[in-house]
Design a binder for these strands. Structure first.
Length: 852
RNA sequence: GCGGGCGUGAUGGAAUGGUAGACAUAUCAGACUUAAAAUCUGAAGGGGCUUUCGCCCCGUGUGGGUUCGAGUCCCACCGCCCGCACCA
């Protein structure tokens, strides 16, 4: 027990407060331009200020902090900022639910979250902090908007929104539940409004092609963006209407033209609108088709319905062949021309539609060895597969789909009735929102001059504070005076635009603003030029498409308007998408059969089963997404007060690869804490050790291996693997009988290698062991190559691919020598039983395989 | 519906196409202790053979394939997760 008296205890709360103060005092994390050092910009996707930090935030920011601290130790000038994605619907919902003002709610949440975040000891330059709802920020965003407008990167057009006919208001997709408004319960309709759009689709090809340059992005994110942008090559041509005029269609499968059995147009197609105006029956049908939400998912999943317009068109290859024109609810006005020709035999949707309405089904091609006509399953072979063609309009008998497509496009172009067109699925980005809590769009509407941009000197156009949320709709619309203004062009009375911007706009350039967060222009070129690009961006996979694609567009637009250098057209050099933190749900059934969710504190775990206090066993649902309603949320504040920030940081990194979900378990957190206490105890023991010992070389050899492995791990985002090596090395060090000097050197190195993950504890033991200055500023240890070379290697011997034995040989033993040793090995002799091996494969330094 | 991903012991997971299960949790055993906690040491994928040293079979969601060799590459299927343009 004398040991415990001598040992200092690991008191995380004290240690962490002490070192955070020391870093603050030294101004360690303030980032300043310094041309003499390489810069490194690490950024985590900034949070929405909900008011409480979540353990998922802890994981996200810890990963960024590990990178930031590691890069600092390797001599980089690090920029690691933090801010708030502060506009959005939750603030308005809170105002509606409990009075108050979105602004007060948001800023008070920000204060709370900052208070919860600071104890984590993140190496953040807080002097650069801002919220997107700060007028200083959104005013600069308005300036960007005006510059984009001048360059023709923004325009107005009609687009559909979710319309709640009872509340008379626009709904967000998440406010539509099963096709009904979340408050009124009314069936939602799709309605057109004039809205502002960014011309992102002008950049489709460039955004697609540049994906190839993003080598340090996850391949899956690039693939998702590629599919989202969706380049396709197809044929565009016009069907001639028998009553005059034409219908322009776009198809990616022109080769199936002979299988066409109807023309389908979107309910929003100009022709559909024309018929709707003339014919009440059409109007009724189209209105029914417009019910339901605007999401692609809702439209795709909705039952396929159509209406025969009675109109007909002529087939381009046969003037006597007439096809009916249907209005169909599954055709999107936004894609292609909003009109298609249906080929039931080779498209499942078209087939379902044709069967439902009794339209003909004609095969245009068959499999090479099977000519059964299509039944209820459309025949859709890969475009690379050879098939047998029934129609011969391009002179083809047997060809792949792709060859037939190319031939058809050539054929149509020669004959002059169609042309090959490259199309993209990507649509322009609608940024108008009919809501209060967002960045006002800085334009005015003048009866004389039309839509007029606001003058830059009048920015920011501030949101008014005196608004109420006691009725549905946009408070800006009903504000008594806010809309009134003078026309910037003619000076007469005009009205402000009351739409605000999509919050994706806010998050599409905040990374650039961090390089000069308080400037009176959106960016400052010198700062942007020094700090951009973001060297490492970290965030959730849920942002793989929209946020990242919009940011890539914005970076290009900002370059075109002189706000970013050319090198920043791709603003994020490397991207990492981290997984979620999950937690088990403990659930039982109430008397009414509904699930009852129990808090972890109410549950006792024994042998992997969970029991309530009264002994009732409850079900465990492992690895569930944390949700307040399921009572399985882990509050970082509780964890930090219980164990300290270092434990929380260590645990969220240790148990799973960073890109995958990690399950928070009380046992895991407890174990992480025990380990850190053990390191603390070990370090204080070693600090007081004296004299010589045995095994200095072995210890230092292990130390250098650990330096190599941890460095590789941190570099490659293998934090869990790096931590496993640190566990192992801690064990080695604890068991080592080496002399005091060697053990102290090893312990100091351990402190350094742990410092990105557990910065406070590392400072503490670094100091204990006589390290110079702050471990934060100590140069990262280098693995000594000479110490890593092993004299002998263990070669596993496989027989037919299964390991049967192993031999230890000098590292560079020639193949022939190895072969001799293997053939002389008793295990090999036994299995060969006198026979000769068919083959003997020797991979030097790795493995031997005897094939018999 | 469409696009993307993931699946390895009781659990989280490790493994440049080359010894599957590192490291950790839970479990069990031992040491220390009057006792407990804390701490330290050890065992352990499943099954079988063997007095011991050891040896054999099976095993990475399921079924096929490529390869001397597959958790890893290819195809199909099953299950779960993410996104689908007004959630952030």
């Amino acid at each position: 027990m004398r040991r415990t008296v001598r040992m200092s205890r690991y008191t995380a709360a004290e240690i962490e407060a002490k070192w955070q103060e020391a870093w603050d005092k030294a101004g360690s994390f303030r980032a300043e331009r310094d041309e003499t050092r390489p810069k490194y910009y690490v950024l985590e996707m900034f949070p929405y200020p909900s008011g409480r930090i979540h353990i998922g935030h802890v994981r996200n920011y810890t990963m960024g902090d590990v990178v930031a601290r590691y890069k600092r130790a390797t001599g980089h000038n690090v920029l690691h900022p933090m801010g708030w994605d502060a506009f959005g619907m939750p603030a308005e919902n809170a105002a509606m639910a409990s009075g108050g003002h979105p602004k007060d709610w948001t800023y008070s949440n920000i204060d709370d979250m900052r208070d919860q975040m600071k104890p984590l000891g993140l190496s953040i330059d807080w002097s650069r902090e801002f919220a997107t709802c700060d007028p200083e920020y959104y005013g600069q965003q308005q300036a960007l908007f005006l510059d984009f407008l001048e360059k023709g990167l923004v325009y107005r057009k009609n687009a559909v929104v979710n319309w709640d006919p009872v509340d008379m208001t626009v709904l967000a997709n998440e406010q539509v539940e099963n096709g009904r408004g979340w408050r009124s319960g009314a069936e939602v309709e799709r309605r057109e409004l004039t809205q502002w759009f960014f011309r992102i689709s002008d950049f489709s090809g460039e955004l697609l092609d540049a994906l190839d340059t993003l080598d340090d992005w996850p391949a899956k994110v690039r693939l998702m963006q590629e599919n989202w942008i969706g380049r396709s090559r197809g044929l565009q041509f016009s069907f001639e209407r028998t009553d005059g005029g034409g219908i322009e269609v776009y198809t990616t499968r022109p080769d199936t033209l002979m299988g066409a059995s109807f023309i389908g147009i979107s309910p929003d197609h100009p022709l559909a609108r024309e018929l709707e105006a003339k014919d009440p029956a059409v109007a009724r049908a189209v209105a029914a088709m417009r019910k339901g939400g605007t999401t692609e998912e809702a439209i795709e999943k909705a039952e396929k319905v159509g209406l025969d317009t009675g109109l007909t068109v002529r087939h381009p290859l046969d003037p006597n062949w007439e096809l009916p024109v249907w209005i169909a609810n599954f055709i999107l006005m936004d894609y292609g021309t909003g009109a298609i020709f249906g080929v039931p035999a080779h498209d499942q949707r078209d087939l379902d539609f044709a069967r439902k309405y009794g339209l003909p089904v004609r095969n245009t091609f068959f499999a090479l060895d099977d000519d059964t006509p299509v039944g209820d399953v459309a025949f859709i072979p890969p475009k690379t597969e050879k098939v047998r063609w029934v129609d011969h309009f391009t002179g083809i008998d047997v060809a792949t789909g792709q060859e037939a497509i190319d031939a058809t496009i050539r054929f149509a172009e020669q004959q002059g009735w169609g042309k090959g067109v490259t199309n993209y699925r990507l649509r322009d980005w609608g940024l108008s929102r009919q809501r209060y809590w967002g960045c006002p769009i800085p334009v005015v509407h003048c009866d004389a001059c039309g839509v007029v941009p606001e003058k830059k000197e009048n920015l920011p156009i501030r949101l008014p504070d005196d608004v109420s949320f006691d009725q549905p709709g946009n408070p800006l619309d009903r504000h008594p005076t806010w809309r009134d203004c003078a026309c910037p062009a003619c000076g007469n009375h005009a009205r402000r635009e009351t739409d605000t911007m999509d919050t994706f706009v806010d998050s599409s350039w905040y990374f650039a603003r961090f390089t000069a967060p308080h400037a009176d222009t959106p960016t400052v070129m010198e700062d942007a030029d020094y700090w951009m690009n973001v060297d490492q961006y970290i965030g959730g996979i849920e942002h793989a498409i929209l946020h990242l694609l919009y940011s890539r567009f914005f970076a290009r637009a900002m370059h075109l308007t002189g706000h970013l250098p050319a090198k920043s057209k791709e603003p994020f050099d490397a991207l990492f998408t981290q997984g979620m933190v999950t937690h088990a749900i403990y659930q039982s059934r109430g008397a009414d059969g509904r699930p009852v969710y129990h808090y972890p504190e109410e549950v006792t775990l024994r042998d992997g089963r969970a029991f309530l206090k009264d002994g009732t066993e409850v079900d465990i649902v492992p690895s569930a997404k944390m949700s307040k309603s399921k009572n399985n949320v882990v509050d970082p504040v509780t964890i930090i007060s219980q164990y300290g920030a270092d434990t929380a940081r260590w645990f969220v990194l240790s148990d799973s690869p960073p890109e995958r979900d990690v399950e928070w378990t009380a046992a895991g957190a407890e174990a992480a804490h025990k380990h850190l206490a053990r390191v603390h105890r070990l370090a204080s023991d070693i600090a007081q050790a004296q004299g010589e010992g045995q095994g200095d070389d072995e210890l230092l050899r292990e130390m250098h291996k650990t330096i190599r492995d941890v460095t590789l791990g941190v570099d490659a985002f293998g934090f869990n693997a790096a931590i496993a090596k640190l566990y192992a090395f801690t064990g080695t060090l604890a068991r080592s009988k080496a002399g005091a000097q060697a053990r102290q050197q090893a312990a100091r190195t351990l402190a350094q290698l742990m410092s990105p993950m557990t910065p406070h504890l590392s400072e503490e033991i670094w100091q204990m062991l006589g390290g110079t200055g702050l471990v934060l500023n100590a140069p990262w240890p280098q693995a000594d190559e000479a110490m890593l070379v092993e004299e002998n290697v263990t070669l596993p011997i496989q027989v037919n691919g299964k390991r049967r034995a192993e031999i230890s040989v000098p590292r560079d033993m020639p193949k022939q020598e190895v072969e001799k040793l293997v053939l002389a090995h008793e295990a090999v002799i036994r299995v060969l039983d006198g026979a000769q091996p068919k083959k003997l494969i020797v991979v030097p330094g790795r493995i031997v395989n005897v094939v018999i």
